[in-house]
Each structure stands twice: as structure tokens, then as C-alpha cells.
């Protein structure tokens, strides 16, 4: 059988390994599993970036109709990623610092860092400059849901806060308490 790539309805190009039936099973051989796991993690992050998704839950592998069906299932070969395998992938991603359990102290849901906080910090600072919002106070809501869609639209507050912390350390942002919660002020920096 020839394993070929496939373009999903959302325009995402699935690698050919996604049409290999054993790809969906957690492998008992550790070195084989590390290959499979690496491929899955790459696929999950690429898909998250493609669809601008931030959260992945074990439920996404248990039920249909979620945002992740296109990669967690392959109806053409009747395979799906089993929840136990996904849970294992979560722990891998968390140990590699490309995801964090969110909320903390549970293992059924993760926040994906398809950009690292440092990278988000640069995106955030770049956005503040290009929209001429330096030195003004912005609420978090104004950043995550701006009137004109930006690369930061929909970014979870947890990631936003970490990006601001990065900027704060280099003197390019300051967190300020505002009437209805928190705000931030950006500086040009050095």
C-alpha cells in the first residue's frame, strides 16, 4: 500500500505517516515510540499553528466534532488516536517545554506553545509598535480581541502574561493595575 499525503478540508497537508495504521497506536518499543511521538508532536504543533488553536484536551480524542478531528482521526483508514496515547504525548510535550498543563495540577488539558513565550513576546512588541500603541495603557482584552484581527487574536491570557513577563525583563513592558483588572504599557525599549 502506498502511503500518501492528504490535504484536509481546512487546507492542512497531512504527512504520509498519518495514513499508516500503526501510527495511531502507542508503540511498546521505546525507540519506535520516540519516533512516533516526535512525528505526532510535530503534527500537533503544525496543525495548532495552522488553525490558530491553543488548547488540546483528552476529550478531543474521546469525542468527535472538536477542532482536532482532522488530525486525531483518519476516517479513510478508520483509525483514531486513543486517549491514553494522547495523554502520553501530553507528558512528552510538557517535559519538552512545548506545552503546559492548563489549568495546572491536572493532566487532561494542555496549552500548546507553538510559539515559545519569547517568540510571542517579540510578536507582541512588534504588534504594539506597528499599531502605534507604545506608551499607552492597553487592557489584556484589547490585545486578545483587538478590533482589527492581529496575530495575537485569541491568545490565551496565560501565554500573554508570560510574553509580557519576558518583555518586562528587558524593560519593554510594564504591567499596570487598571479599573477592571490588569493592563499593560509597552515601551520602545533599547
Amino acid at each position: 500500500m502506498a502511503l500518501s499525503t492528504h490535504t484536509t478540508a481546512s487546507g492542512f497537508l497531512l504527512p504520509s505517516i498519518h495514513s499508516a495504521p500503526p501510527f495511531f497506536t502507542q508503540q511498546p518499543n521505546a525507540s519506535t515510540q520516540s519516533i512516533v511521538g516526535e512525528q505526532w508532536i510535530r503534527l500537533i504543533l503544525a496543525y495548532a499553528r495552522h488553525r490558530n488553536l491553543f488548547t488540546l484536551r483528552i476529550e478531543d480524542a474521546e469525542t468527535t466534532g472538536g477542532d482536532w478531528d482532522e488530525i486525531l482521526r483518519n476516517e479513510r483508514i478508520h483509525r483514531r488516536l486513543l486517549p491514553s496515547h494522547l495523554s502520553f504525548l501530553f507528558s512528552e510535550m510538557v517535559s519538552k517545554n512545548i506545552a503546559v498543563y492548563e489549568p495546572p495540577k491536572q493532566t487532561r488539558s494542555v496549552l500548546l506553545y507553538w510559539r515559545l513565550p519569547e517568540e510571542w513576546a517579540e510578536v507582541l512588541h512588534g504588534w504594539a509598535i506597528s499599531t502605534a500603541q507604545l506608551n499607552t495603557i492597553l487592557t489584556f482584552y484589547e490585545i486578545t480581541d483587538p478590533p482589527i484581527e492581529s496575530p495575537l487574536t485569541g491568545i490565551p491570557v496565560t501565554i500573554l502574561r508570560r510574553a509580557i513577563t519576558v518583555l518586562n525583563k528587558t524593560g519593554r513592558a510594564q504591567i499596570i493595575g487598571v479599573a477592571d483588572g490588569e493592563g499593560v504599557r509597552f515601551f520602545a525599549g533599547t
Partner: peptide, 19 residues
Amino acid sequence: GLCWLDEQDERSGRAYWVP
């Protein structure tokens, strides 16, 4: 590590695949 395992095989439930 010459085989991969497939636990969702329709016919046998458990199949081996040789990549």
C-alpha cells in the same frame, strides 16, 4: 524495532506492520 504495532486492526484487533 522492525515492526510497528496497530491495536485498531479491524480484522484481528492487533496487527503488526513492517514499515
